[in-house]
Amino acid sequence: MSPAARSVTAGGCFGRWGLALLGAVACQPAQAPRYPAVARALMERVDQDGDHKVDADEYYLLLLPGGTEGGGAFSALDTDGSGDLSEAELEAGLLATDPVEVRHAALAAEKAAQRAALEPPDQGPAGEPGSPDGPGGGPNSGVGAGGAPPVEGR
């Protein structure tokens, strides 16, 4: 995980609806959980060593690839800068992080990486974005590069 990937601003981290619900809590150093039962359940899930706080190693151990591209970086969640996440910080950060935005960002980042790996810079013009022979149109991609609509299952 590169330092750049980890440094996401709090403004980019919090989805607008989550922000609306959590109000000012989300962007301030979190003091106490607003939803205690939820925060407790979250802590029990994420705290691997049982010390009732979550350090960066524990956090990144659980994060899916690309998870910080659209939010969810440890530094953004650690609002008091203590180096650990409390129940309140976990709650405020994870509930306010827009999960769909994160997934789309991660997918876009992954496709960009694939594109970079497949196409050397000196190659000729590529096909249309999204076409089977165009950038991002891998066998399983189903979507082309360039922000095609999200793919849905049934």
Binding site: L63, L77, P99
Partner: peptide, 21 residues
């Protein structure tokens, strides 16, 4: 995202490459 591997924290296999699609 930040809970993704909480059920299998040690997992490092190839399925990590497909989880967003």
């Amino acid at each position: 995202q930040a809970l993704g591997r909480s059920a299998t924290p040690g997992y490092r296999g190839p399925m990590l490459d497909i989880v967003h699609d």
